[in-house]
Amino acid sequence: MMPLVDSVHVLILVTCLLLLGSSRLGACIRTVAIQGIVAGGVLPWVSSLHISMQLLFTGVFVMALKGIVFPVLLSRAMREASASREMSPFVGYGTSLMAGVLFFLASLWLGAKLPTPDGVSGLAVPTACMMVSTGLFLIIARRLAVTQVIGYIVVENGIYALGLAVAHDIPVLVELGAMLDAFVAVFVMGIAIFHINREFDHMDSGRLNVLKG
């Protein structure tokens, strides 16, 4: 029905699987940048029937933020914290990938339950749910603090895509506000990672349990 829109959705689904399966931090940061560009900029452009000034403007803004600013911030946080380039997961990569497939099946089921507005691809809601669950899984299943920021960005991408699917006209101010929140969050988390690292010589969130009183 909509080959172009569906292709973009499948591209996003593949980036989700890549995030779950890749072991290199640098590759993950690049993948999440690509996902941000596709989900934030390209998806709204191809899925709307007419391109308005507002859509063009927010698209460019989101692409610049998620495609350039976030990766630069994350790479810098990684470099300053001299994080190891391996991900050191709690849950193995193969298991994560299979979990990703389960998330997708659950998202399809959920997408069938939720009413999709006319003119929106049947894959829109499942893709958004897949991104949210992938992001949450990354936050739980990976050890390094940088990966948790990546998971947070993926969740944000998912919520943005979900909003796009179910509510067509989000006021530009609301969208920009949400973007700004995400930007500040990533910025603050970058600083927090740096401080955690300086204080404790590592950023292994698994060892925070030791601090319990």
Binding site: V10, L13, V14, L17, Y93, L97, M98, V101, L123
Partner: peptide, 16 residues
């Protein structure tokens, strides 16, 4: 890991 990725992609395609 690459092969598990291939299986995951194949399952994705099957569901799609």
């Amino acid at each position: 890991r690459m092969l598990v990725g291939a299986v995951a992609l194949a399952l994705l395609a099957f569901a799609l």
